Simulated assay, not measured.
Amino acid sequence: MWIRNLSTLECTKLLSSHRVGRLACSMEGQPYVVPIYYAYQENHLYAFSMPGRKIDFMRANPLVCVLVDVKGEGRGWQSVVAEGRFEELPDRIGFKRERDQAWTLLAKHSDWWEPGALKPAQPPVTSHSPHIFFRIAVTEVSGREAQD
């Protein structure tokens, strides 16, 4: 088996061609990692969530990273870490274009909303949905690949 570094272009291609990653964030020295569905475009990872722990963590400390990894043939694999900054896209004036962009990119897949909208215990249904669109402004990517 041999391992090599992926180029920036290879990292970007892997991020663009996949939808599930592991978001790592921290608050007051406590790390937290959770899977997310995302869409990647122009150095941004777009995602959706209901209020909860990951949103609280990212609001407190916007520096985050996302790991995307893929099993290859045999013992092979590829992984990319995208480091960046959390940017909430609130439902108010000044963010409409970015929210629409997030919606458009995520909605290309029929099940895009499920991981972010489903919680173990659902709150009562109201006329207002507290869903949160956000993006990660990617500042750096790095990746590796292992092949037999």
Rank of each mutant, 00 (worst) to 15 (best):
L89K: 06
F133D: 03
L14H: 08
S127P: 05
R59A: 05
K54A: 12
G52A: 12
S110L: 08
P62W: 06
W113Y: 13
V125W: 07
K108V: 11
V80R: 13
P115Q: 05
G94H: 01
P124K: 08
Y32C: 13
E73W: 00
T126Q: 12
Y32A: 10
S79D: 09
L15N: 03
W113K: 15
L23K: 08
V68I: 07
Q101P: 04
L105F: 05
V80M: 06
S142I: 10
S26T: 15
A107T: 08
S110M: 05
Y38C: 01
P35E: 12
H128G: 03
R85C: 13
Q147E: 11
A82W: 02
V34E: 11
R59G: 08
K96S: 04
G116I: 01
W103C: 09
C65M: 09
M27Y: 14
R59Q: 11
R135G: 01
E88K: 05
V66C: 05
A82K: 08
W77C: 13
Y32E: 12
P120H: 01
Y46I: 00
V34S: 06
H128V: 13
A82C: 06
R59M: 10
L63Q: 14
W103P: 01
H128A: 13
H131Q: 11
Q122Y: 09
R97V: 14
F95M: 03
V66Y: 03
R19H: 14
S16D: 09
I55L: 11
H44C: 11
N61V: 06
S110R: 10
F133E: 03
W103Q: 11
E73H: 00
G76A: 08
T139R: 15
V64I: 11
V70F: 02
L106V: 01
G76I: 01
G143Y: 00
R53W: 06
A82P: 09
L23I: 09
V34F: 05
S17T: 12
K108R: 14
D91R: 15
A82F: 00
V125C: 05
Q122W: 10
V125S: 08
V20W: 13
S17L: 05
E140L: 13
Q78W: 04
A137W: 10
G29R: 15
P123L: 08
P123A: 07
W103G: 00
H131A: 07
D69Q: 04
Y46A: 02
F134R: 07
V68F: 05
D111Q: 14
V141M: 15
N61W: 12
R53K: 15
A39T: 10
V141C: 13
S49A: 10
L67N: 10
S79Y: 10
E83A: 13
R19K: 11
M58Q: 06
A137I: 12
R85A: 11
A102L: 01
L63F: 07
C65D: 14
Y40K: 02
I132K: 09
E73D: 02
V125G: 01
N61S: 14
Y32P: 07
N43C: 05
E114M: 09
A47H: 08
E28K: 15
V125T: 12
L106F: 00
R144D: 02
A24H: 07
E87V: 10
Y38T: 01
Y32N: 12
E88D: 05
R97E: 15
S26F: 09
S142N: 13
S16N: 11
A137C: 12
R53H: 14
L67G: 03
I55C: 09
A60P: 04
G116Y: 02
S16V: 03
S127G: 12
G143W: 02
P115G: 03
L23T: 10
